[in-house]
């Protein structure tokens, strides 16, 4: 349960001479799903990376619980998970090993927790195969299991539904709703397939 909100104030970010973020301000509150939309190249990924502290905006700041995240980046990262469009999985390790190393960095994991997260994202059947042999959608399900396991109140998701079948997209919607319903925050750049109760959903349109 998170009582904190995330606020971005007037973010400006340049990539070379391209002005990608032109004064973006947004806020997300506990229990809320913020859907980022915008045409391709509008800067959704850049915005997510700026929010989680990977990209440094030239101007503006990101506030978590009213405090600039730059003041305590490690503390902010401990409550945040960012999932890019590629799942951060090693091709030569099995799905289960990948999760143990990836999420194990953030908190101690038990085998039961791992099993139940894999079951929840219906990844149990291929959990012991090397990730190299998995399809893109299967990898995505493993990454979703990681999302569940890390117990971070703030989820920053970049196209979480890509490569997933209809059942998988419904799964993402269910996980996101449940996470928000538990009083947490989700910010997701997603075009379609996200079904969340209307009172939880906010939209933020990024101008190109």
């Amino acid at each position: 349960m998170s009582r904190y909100n995330l606020r971005a104030e007037n973010l400006h970010l340049w990539r070379g001479d391209r002005h990608v973020l032109k004064g973006v301000s947004l806020s997300a509150n506990p229990g809320e799903v913020l859907q980022l939309t915008g045409v391709n190249g509008a800067g959704k990924t850049t915005l997510l990376r700026a929010l989680c502290g990977l990209a440094h905006p030239e101007q503006g700041r990101v506030l978590w619980a009213g405090r600039d995240v730059r003041a305590d980046l490690a503390g902010f990262h401990a409550v945040t998970i960012y999932l890019g469009h590629e799942a951060p999985l090693k091709p030569d390790l099995t799905a289960r090993e990948n999760l143990r190393f990836w999420i194990g960095l953030r908190r101690p994991l038990t085998a039961t927790e791992l099993d139940s997260a894999l079951a929840e994202t219906t990844a149990t059947t291929f959990a012991d195969r090397p990730v190299r042999t998995l399809s893109a959608g299967q990898k995505r399900r493993v990454a979703l299991a990681g999302l569940l396991l890390c117990r971070a109140p703030l989820w920053l998701l970049d196209e979480p539904t890509t490569n997933l079948d209809t059942a998988g997209q419904a799964l993402v919607s269910r996980l996101v709703s449940a996470h928000a319903a538990a009083g947490n925050l989700v910010i997701a750049a997603v075009h379609q397939g996200l079904q969340v109760e209307a009172h939880r959903l906010n939209r933020f349109e990024l101008a190109a």
């Binding site: 990977l54 945040t80 960012y82 590629e86 951060p88 090693k90 953030r106």
Partner: peptide, 18 residues
């Protein structure tokens, strides 16, 4: 190189660990 390519380094940087 491999860790940079598959996003592992990114997750290291965001893990809350040093």
């Amino acid at each position: 190189r491999d860790d940079a390519a598959d996003g592992t380094l990114e997750q290291y940087a965001l893990s809350g660990q040093s």
